[in-house]
Design a protein around this nucleic acid. Structure first.
Lengths: 204, 204
DNA sequence: AATTGTGAATTGATTCACAGCT
DNA sequence: AGCTGTGAATCAATTCACAATT
């Protein structure tokens, strides 16, 4: 396991802080206190400070944090894989939507290729579409480390088994199933139906 | 706040157990031990048992849990809002994709209507599309309690402020921004860019 | 005077380990 | 004999409160 002892939740919040800092930067704000930034991010000031000090002392006592400076530090911490290629596997409804969805690019990721078992050419596609046969070679040739998985649940584990030996180290999994990966490979699951079901519990 | 003291994480896991039970049911399995079910769901047996006993004693010592029985109990716990109408607001790339994505229906939710500031009619749309003006009335008339929010970040809070007085109690928010809601309204955030950024931290 | 950085205290979640049923 | 249900123990995350710093 590469980076231990730093909780995933902290890393997640770092992204939120980063987004708030971008906002402040466009507003022209130069410095921000932990109180103000925490409020914007929806956390307690003490938590923000605790999170940050896991990576260094970025603030100035009595003053706060430099918006520019802190943002750069966070880019440093988070940004390893920015500008790295990301591939998308499974061009069904959800997959093709994510290809058109601009949200990833805006945050600095670029989907460079897509793959499907039945690669029906799409009219206005911007991202090239390949067959599954070409997947291993593409990953190896381009040093791809991240994949977005939008295949049906029953196909997920098979695809995972195929791509990990090629060098995939992180998977954003939309397939509604548990996937099994070796040590050193990271998975974030996004299960839309579970999110909705979860909410449904809370309505009275 | 309607349901207190039960952790959200527990409710989330209940959905996972439910999914595993469905699988077992189609396999024709009649009973399952906490050990087996926990393994399928990717948790420890003790955690599964702890989670379940928050809602009742569903198992039989020495035997395990009835697949059918436990599944019914979980439906009871989770299922309040199943078969309830869900609306989707913001028919852009992501929104229109989610409308076509079958995953929600499969898990028992039905998106009954969609809304957009510029409701351009779509050729093969199954779900009716309305303008934002019609939103409040639709929510009130149909007693809608759940909404999927796929509008741009800058529009999110405005929409939220408009729909909550009409009776929306739970929001699945895809807008990459924090939304502010009063006590008693529940929000699950799905932030795709943050998920990807989070993963990128862990790759070496 | 203001605000960070941080040890200590608290709160919460997970896991253990075994008593209690079937 | 096997497996659940659960109090106690452990582990992790959050928050407090204040000394240190500018």
């Amino acid at each position: 396991m590469p980076k231990p002892d730093i909780p995933r939740k902290t890393i997640y919040r770092l992204s939120l802080y980063q987004r708030c800092l971008q906002q402040l930067k466009t507003n022209g704000t130069a410095t921000v206190s932990s109180e103000a930034l925490a409020k914007a991010a929806g956390v307690k000031p003490s938590q923000l400070r605790k999170d940050l000090t896991l990576f260094g002392n970025f603030g100035t006592r009595g003053l706060g944090y430099s918006v520019e400076g802190l943002s750069n530090e966070l880019t440093e911490v988070l940004g390893t894989a920015k500008l790295q290629p990301v591939i998308l596997i499974g061009v069904g409804n959800l997959g093709s939507a994510l290809l058109r969805y601009g949200g990833f690019n805006k945050e600095g990721f670029e989907i460079t290729a897509s793959f499907d078992a039945e690669p029906t050419p799409r009219p206005h596609a911007v991202v090239p579409l390949f067959s599954m046969e070409e997947l291993p070679e593409y990953i190896r040739k381009n040093g791809v480390k991240m994949a977005i998985l939008t295949v049906p649940a029953h196909a997920a584990q098979g695809v995972v088994n195929a791509i990990i030996p090629c060098g995939i180290q992180a998977i954003l999994n939309f397939a509604p199933t548990l996937i099994d990966v070796p040590e050193g490979v990271w998975v974030n699951n996004v299960d839309l139906a579970v999110e909705l079901e979860n909410l449904s519990y809370f309505i009275r």
